[in-house]
Simulated assay, not measured.
Amino acid sequence: MYFVNEQHELNFASVLMMHPNARTNVEYRSACYILAVPMIFEKVEYYIDDFKSPVGWMLRYLEWQEDFKDEWKGDREERHPDHEAWIDRKPYDLSNSMIQLGKLALNLWTGYDDFNLMRCLASLDKDNVHVARCAIDVRLGLIR
């Protein structure tokens, strides 16, 4: 199994303890593997006990994003007086590559449709392209 660094491997072991069914369930295992990526794990670690599944971090972020879009449908040039309060409610700050890995985790988990593999890969550096490949192999049962 490919790990970005030693911290990724340690995070993965921790996440597997939280989701023991990931030992036999490839959907869980691939999602746990992506959650354990250090750049993601450090952003969501504080909230990790709140998640019922290893994709909960991404579901929470997408829910906030959808609520934000619904609230701010108007003229993008205008700033609503509560704009900063909405931004402060963002659960955590994720980069585009983190969001793309999160969408990959959801796609491997449930077949999440709002995902484009090429967009995902284009957003990743070399190490995280390896992460994406490994997550796919885990989901296919090629890596245990």
Rank of each mutant, 00 (worst) to 15 (best):
R79H: 10
I99K: 10
R23I: 12
N116G: 14
W64N: 04
H80E: 00
Y112P: 10
L121S: 11
E45S: 13
M58N: 10
A31W: 04
S14D: 02
G74T: 12
S14G: 03
R144W: 01
R139C: 04
V129C: 02
E84G: 07
D67W: 05
D82Y: 11
V131W: 05
D70G: 03
E45G: 12
D70P: 01
N5A: 02
S30N: 03
D75Y: 10
S30E: 03
L35F: 09
E27A: 13
L117Y: 13
C134I: 09
I136D: 04
A36R: 14
H130V: 06
E6T: 01
K126Y: 07
L121T: 10
I40W: 07
L104T: 07
N128F: 14
S95R: 03
R119Q: 15
H130N: 13
E71N: 06
W57S: 01
L108A: 14
V15A: 06
E27H: 14
D125G: 12
F3Y: 06
N107T: 09
M58I: 14
L104R: 03
E6Q: 01
D49T: 15
P81M: 00
K73E: 06
R144Q: 07
E84V: 08
I40P: 09
K43L: 14
E9M: 01
I48H: 11
L142G: 03
Y112M: 11
L106C: 08
F115L: 11
A135F: 09
A135C: 06
E78V: 02
G141L: 08
D113L: 15
D50I: 12
Q100N: 15
G74P: 12
L59C: 01
V4K: 02
G102P: 05
L10Q: 02
N96P: 00
E42L: 05
Y33C: 11
W109V: 10
A22D: 03
A85Q: 14
A31C: 09
F68I: 15
P81V: 02
S97W: 08
V55D: 02
E77L: 00
N11I: 08
I40V: 08
H8N: 02
Y33G: 05
Y47R: 12
I136W: 02
W109E: 12
W86H: 13
L59G: 00
L94W: 12
Y2L: 03
M39S: 11
S14H: 07
H83K: 02
R60D: 11
R144H: 05
A132F: 11
E45Y: 13
G56A: 14
H19F: 03
L59N: 00
K43P: 10
G74V: 15
R60P: 04
F12H: 06
R139K: 05
Y47N: 09
C32H: 09
